[in-house]
């Protein structure tokens, strides 16, 4: 499982931009919502699309889920338990690098 977490985390870090938005609160919202939706879409659950904002999280997650499925053949057949573990651990690692221990001094400024 650790290897799979590494693979998903590595792909997100190399490919995505949303974990590095301008401020901590944006980063956290993106990380939790998009990775949360990736787990939902992987296990054929519906993602929240009620507002433009949640719809944007869905769109980012949908494309990422497709990319992960194409790149890692094992991704599509993960069980609900496995994808939940990957989701939680990838969220933890993204939060760690982009929010908790980021050296970017600007991300805590209260204004944009």
């Amino acid at each position: 499982m650790e290897e799979k977490v590494d693979a998903v985390y590595g792909f997100v870090m190399e490919r995505c931009l949303w974990q590095f938005f301008s401020r901590n609160w944006d980063r956290e919202a993106n990380i939790k919502n998009i990775m949360g939706n990736v787990a939902k879409l992987q296990s054929a659950q519906e993602a929240d699309r009620a507002t433009n904002q949640t719809n944007a999280y869905y769109a980012d997650a949908k494309i990422l889920t497709e990319q992960l499925s194409k790149k890692f053949p094992w991704f599509v057949s993960l069980s609900l338990e496995e994808i939940s573990t990957i989701r939680d651990q990838v969220i933890d690692r993204l939060m760690d690098v982009a929010v908790v221990h980021s050296l970017n001094a600007e991300r805590t400024e209260i204004n944009y």
Binding site: W18, F21, D26, N52, Y57, A59, Y112
Partner: peptide
Amino acid sequence: ARSAGYIANELQKQYGIPRMD
């Protein structure tokens, strides 16, 4: 996002328009 991320952020905050990078 460097030269114009600010306005994308403010449009999200003030008008609820999501920013998609």
